[in-house]
Design a protein around this nucleic acid. Sequence first.
DNA 1: TTGAAAGCGGTACCAG
DNA 2: CTGGTACCGCTTTCAA
Lengths: 351, 351
Amino acid sequence: MQKKDAITIKDIAKALNLSVATVSRSLKDSYQISEQTKKKVRAYAEANHYMPNLMAQSLKNRKTRSIGLMICSIPNNFLAEVISGIESAANSKNYHVIITQSHESFEREMQNLDFLTSRAVDGFLVSIATETQNFSHFEEILSQNLPIVFFDRIPDIDNIHQVVSDNHEGAYNATKHLLQNGFTKIGHITSSVNLSITKERLEGYYKALEEFNIPLNEMYIKYCHHGGMLLEEVEKAISELLAAQIPVDAILTASDRITTATLKSLQERGLKIPDDIGIVGFTNFSFPELFNPPLTTVNQSAFEMGKTAAELLITQIESKRPLKAFEKIILPAVLTVRKTSMKAKQNTVSS
Amino acid sequence: MQKKDAITIKDIAKALNLSVATVSRSLKDSYQISEQTKKKVRAYAEANHYMPNLMAQSLKNRKTRSIGLMICSIPNNFLAEVISGIESAANSKNYHVIITQSHESFEREMQNLDFLTSRAVDGFLVSIATETQNFSHFEEILSQNLPIVFFDRIPDIDNIHQVVSDNHEGAYNATKHLLQNGFTKIGHITSSVNLSITKERLEGYYKALEEFNIPLNEMYIKYCHHGGMLLEEVEKAISELLAAQIPVDAILTASDRITTATLKSLQERGLKIPDDIGIVGFTNFSFPELFNPPLTTVNQSAFEMGKTAAELLITQIESKRPLKAFEKIILPAVLTVRKTSMKAKQNTVSS
DNA sequence: TTGAAAGCGGTACCAG
DNA sequence: CTGGTACCGCTTTCAA
């Protein structure tokens, strides 16, 4: 296999009786070159479909105009939208993005980081894996002055740039809403304990309970170490919630995968929603009203998150010196009430 | 911003008192180098975390170990899975993939092709946009001996490599199933006329009708030129199907987006499924049983499609000369019957 | 079995 | 305003 040879700067120089230096400068519109020459060069380049060889430029400039993305999984309503936002922002600034999936594995996360490093990406966009508890691999990259913007799931490291959802608010509103609708025994199925999103959502959940003077029941909190990738872990969580001494009467699910898996499990058990059990779920599925019954959701600004994170990263890549102002951008997570969280009758615990 | 300098082949040479040529050869396990020297070099390289500079290698070899992907949109249950399959295959062969979205625009498709070309990808994986009717941009690439593997939506070009679903079979089975369940006035909402998948699905649909001696009603076929990206186009299609002289009693939807959009529209109209109208949809949503009612689906081998296409492409990239055997790999599209296509009572047209 | 050196396609420094 | 040239890191031919 051989490609048709593309025209190079040298060819232009020869054709126009100029030096490569002059051609190179003309092409970058250097002030030192006469308009006349520039025009000639540009015209010739245009006419012959000159395209700079990015490999050569990269080798010289130490910039690849590429950014590395690390997420747990692509087939995920939330993340697919995030990727779309990233791709859109990157593309418009003439960057390309290299996607890697950790599948929630710490091991894979480190491998992927190596992979991206070997690709010499100019910066990283990362949402950490559920398994990850040690962040030295990221710190090492940061110490080399390579920019990282973390999004969604943030590691516990000082001085980082991050773009996140208002998880606290989202979970708080969801829980409060359930309480206001007469649910009092609210379970919470969430991801790994160590994730930032888990902690924040948990806090929102706590806060709402507190406001309603509902004592916290630790047994009502279930963690899925694979972030809902495995149906079994969600199954188990639900079984336990339902088998509690005082079974839950509602569930708040904390991620896209967990939400759908929960719905599925509840359905298989033949439970009536919301009469037998209420549910509010974090998800970015486009039409939650199509579920049976229509699902009350907490929807994150996924596309926006990807776009913002990518823009923030590119700004850093292109800035002369490291940004010292570490940004934490918080995007809304909005509750939309539908059927799954509305008790048929308000006579909750009929005494 | 500057990165910490990585160790190069030159550093190794200096440290070991060897020439760069010898080091380079040792690293690629050349037969001309003594085992002793190789061992020494490898040990030093390992110990100092030597990583070859891919930019330099690419510049020299004219290979970037990257493949360009072009699809209409990332947030799509079917495509997200395809991407996952591609990513997985590519990664395991040490390639990276650059994703671009056409958003169903011909214009964007060409821009993206340029973008990928400027990135010097070693090959392309493409599923064409609904708008695309002219394929010269692909033919030009092909003429440069750059490999392309088309998947899902195939252009009308001779001698290409392709990986597709058994769309004919999928649509045929779906339609037959509807007919067997007493639906006789079956509408079909599909993508652009010009797409291969559209034609194939249409044929499967025809074939089933024929077998049941149902005359074809052209008014029952509705095309969505944006592939279901716009809710309005689906809305319009449904309105027309329902406003026909003899309204449809069932619908076969031909893509992920169209399927969910149809469900949504039907629900908003307050139509009871399947009593008022039956539906079978192509989709790769993970839990179609969660819809109301559980959706009868045609599910494609999405992950497999991505994996297969990527592997086929990489084989071509790495083969010395163009493969002359043009492969057409057909993957199953399987019908799973659920509620939306089962009439409550079999007394269809009670006379 | 090893080394010297040309060169991939640009960029940028130094001269003039 | 323009040209010459070293160099980015690696591969490969040619010579030793």
